[in-house]
Computed example of a mutant assay.
Amino acid sequence: MKNFLKGVMILLFVLLIFWAGYTVGTNRMDQEDFGDSAVFYAEILEIDGRSMLVSGLKENDVNYRGEFSFQVTADTKIEWHHTDIALTELMPGQHISITFSGGVQESYPAQIQDVSRISLLDDVNPQRDKAEISSVKNYYMNAEELGKTEQSLPCLTLLDKENFVFSYDVLSSYIPMGTYEITDGELIATDKEKGSRYVFEVVDENTLKFIQEKSADVSLTEENAGAVITDGALFERKQV
């Protein structure tokens, strides 16, 4: 009887060792298969400060097809085409991949912890295109020999890719503004209210040359109150 009980105990001990080894091996295999982080794909639904609400795409595993929310921290890397971008460049409707290493709190929406990376997957980045389109370019007339301050010099301002403001007479209450186009090496600015045209030869990216015979009158209210624009006057771009 004692030998029988001794044999049972030995068998139970062997089974216990086998089960422990199997459990450790399984856990180790899970870690090797999945690593310390998970990645899934989603569409941005809302961005509120540093909080983001997303909806998992159908391409994901079934566990990542619902709605999720998470916090973007200072340690969260945000990128587009392997280039770092700001959180402000993300917007609802964009598709992203989300890498996280924390847990997922079962709530609605599910709460994701420790998001380490957000990658914008879309081919275009509208926020960057918008910033490029809305960049302002100021071209001041080169009149250093006249000793005039920059504020009193004629200035052609290109507000974006189609709108302009042309300030050349500090005493005039009217400032021409409208749309412009560049064709055949010339920049043609058309005032939207009076229909007046102001034409410049595009010398290079930073230099325009005024063409008087193709342009409307640009005489000053008082000649001594500013710099007179003459034919061939150069307008040079100044960084804003």
Rank of each mutant, 00 (worst) to 15 (best):
M52C: 01
F68A: 06
Y22K: 15
D169Q: 02
Q212I: 02
K2N: 12
L12D: 03
E144S: 14
F13P: 00
H81Q: 10
I10V: 13
F166N: 01
D204Q: 03
F166Y: 13
Y41S: 12
P126A: 02
M141Y: 00
V14W: 08
E145F: 14
D191F: 09
Y140A: 07
P154W: 03
S116W: 04
S37D: 07
L156R: 01
T88N: 11
T26D: 12
I17W: 05
V240S: 03
Q151R: 14
K192M: 11
I44Y: 00
D231Y: 09
K77R: 11
K130S: 10
F40K: 01
F210S: 00
L187H: 02
S101Q: 09
V218W: 14
L159I: 09
L187M: 14
V24A: 15
L90I: 04
Y139R: 05
Y168I: 00
Y22M: 10
D84T: 10
S173T: 10
G226P: 02
L171G: 00
E67V: 05
A189R: 10
E186D: 05
S101F: 04
S119H: 11
E79P: 00
I133Q: 09
G232L: 08
Q71E: 07
D61L: 07
P154N: 06
F100D: 01
T76W: 09
L156D: 04
V202W: 10
G195L: 06
D184H: 12
V240F: 09
A131G: 01
D191E: 06
A86I: 01
H81N: 09
L53H: 11
K130I: 09
I112S: 01
V218C: 14
F200M: 06
I78E: 05
K194I: 02
I112V: 11
E144Y: 12
W19L: 13
I118H: 03
V203F: 11
D84W: 02
V62W: 09
V165K: 07
R197L: 02
L234F: 11
S55Y: 03
V199F: 12
T26Q: 15
F166I: 02
P109N: 03
D114T: 12
V240R: 15
Y174P: 01
K148W: 08
K6Y: 08
G103D: 08
I112N: 01
F200W: 15
Q127W: 04
E59G: 13
N60V: 03
L120Y: 03
Q71W: 07
I85G: 00
E67H: 08
L57G: 03
L120F: 06
A38D: 07
G93M: 05
L220H: 14
V218A: 13
P126G: 09
E193T: 13
Q127Y: 09
